[in-house]
């Protein structure tokens, strides 16, 4: 299983994501935002957290228009997998690969703390290692994680079980407590919480590692 992790100027969770993929057994190649092509044979692309391009204009907007993102889009259009965490989720919404947008937190403050998340579906390569309905503890660290989408989009997400995670206690004003969503083909996941920061015993728990293990396990079997 081969993962590529995209690095933008201002990414700061790229190496954590690499370690989490490697610990799950994946081979990882780091890819620079100016690269035009993903390495051959990449199964999953990781878009890491951070503050790409200083969050200028809108979070993720400049990154979404970078050369590598054209290839990431093409990869997803071919049925490839992608995982966007935090700023990566913002980038995925800005590219249009996931619906909706992440607005400024309703409390206007940057929030950094470990939170309980409810796993809403185990029907995806990312979440197959969890039982639906389980609560896991994963940290968030963001200023703009307030998920917003129009009513039709929310209905489509709910009707097709595309909400992957919800906050047990809403930290940012997200509609319907949404913390992470899947694409229509369930192969692209965007989430604000950081599973790569709860992936080793020294982090406090390893509930985030389950996500990487499920993904790597499923793609290695495929």
């Amino acid at each position: 299983m081969h993962a590529a992790v995209v690095v933008f100027p201002g990414s700061n969770c790229d190496r954590d994501m690499k370690v989490a993929f490697e610990n799950a057994g994946a081979k990882v190649t780091m890819v620079w935002h100016k690269d035009t092509d993903l390495p051959k044979g990449v199964d999953v692309v990781g878009i890491p957290g951070g503050f790409s391009f200083g969050d200028y204009l809108r979070c993720g907007a400049i990154a979404a228009n970078s050369p590598i993102c054209q290839s990431v889009k093409a990869h997803a259009d071919r049925g490839g997998y992608a995982l966007g965490i935090c700023n990566g989720f913002q980038v995925l919404t800005e590219t249009g690969m996931l619906p909706g947008v992440l607005l400024r937190n309703s409390g206007l403050k940057y929030v950094c703390k470990a939170l309980d998340l409810k796993v809403e579906t185990s029907n995806s390569a990312f979440t197959s290692g969890y039982n639906a309905g389980t609560t896991i503890t994963i940290p968030i660290a963001h200023h703009d994680g307030n998920y917003f989408a129009d009513d039709d989009t929310l209905k489509a997400l709910n009707d097709n079980e595309r909400v992957a995670f919800r906050y047990v206690e809403n930290p940012n004003g997200s509609q319907q407590d949404i913390a992470g969503i899947l694409s229509q083909n369930r192969r692209v996941l965007g989430m604000m919480p950081h599973p790569e920061r709860m992936a080793e015993p020294i982090h406090g728990n390893t509930e985030g590692a389950t996500l990487f293990a499920s993904l790597v396990g499923q793609l290695a079997d495929a």
């Binding site: 919404t93 947008v101 917003f148």
Partner: peptide, 9 residues
């Protein structure tokens, strides 16, 4: 349309 505004919001 492409960059300066996000027409979702």
């Amino acid at each position: 349309e492409k960059l300066l505004a996000n027409t979702v919001i």
